[in-house]
Design a protein around this nucleic acid. Sequence first.
DNA 1: ACTAGTGTACCATGTGTATAGTACACTAGT
DNA 2: ACTAGTGTACTATACACATGGTACACTAGT
Lengths: 121, 121
Amino acid sequence: MNFDAHAPIYLQVVDALKLEIINGRLAAGEKLPSGRDLALHYTINPNTAARVYQELERQEICFTRRGMGTFVTEDKERIALCKSQMAEEALSKFLISLKDLGITKEEAIDMINEANDICLV
Amino acid sequence: MNFDAHAPIYLQVVDALKLEIINGRLAAGEKLPSGRDLALHYTINPNTAARVYQELERQEICFTRRGMGTFVTEDKERIALCKSQMAEEALSKFLISLKDLGITKEEAIDMINEANDICLV
DNA sequence: ACTAGTGTACCATGTGTATAGTACACTAGT
DNA sequence: ACTAGTGTACTATACACATGGTACACTAGT
């Protein structure tokens, strides 16, 4: 995984895991990798990995049982809410940028329609 | 100005000034506040303010004359290019978020149309 | 009881950022 | 020459983040 140097790694991994959960690649109630395994997978420090799970627990996306591991929440509504919150946030940031730049909604929709999907790389 | 704790202050001020320039509130060639005045206005440290102008100069949005001050570039095409780059970046980030969340362009356009402008607050 | 796997809690180090303060160099105007 | 305003440079401190390493506590299974 490529990390953006201008944002904390642990928050970037948090977002990556949230997307895994939202898209169902990690099911509700499923066990997540241990902190040490997560560290190996993302080539980060175990301390940073532990911080990832602390943050996910703070956001109530996951829960932790000492000695057992960290698990995806059983609450599917909580997961759905997380998805809509992330969508709202993305939309809000986009609309603020448009406003700052003096771009109208109509122009924005044109930009979206014209956007080549290749630019997503 | 409210700063986001998760991003360097000097970059946030850089973006704020770029928007001032793009929207013409700061004209091409116009003199910017001195580093000390900028620091007072944004209640940041003079060192941080100096870093703001160094970054704007690096991006060729401004130029600096020792002893005289920092000025907006005279090159209006450069300013226009800056605007389109920022619009591209905003669009790209939005499209990536949509893709990550599994939201189609059509759904996104619906979201934009339904968005209440109040949410821009 | 023992062991392996797990979360948790430290310590130390290095880096980037922001702050505070001081000093110096250049420019324009007087 | 002098002064005020400007950019620039340097030291020092503090904090968040990331890393490396070690140690301890809990859990399940044997």
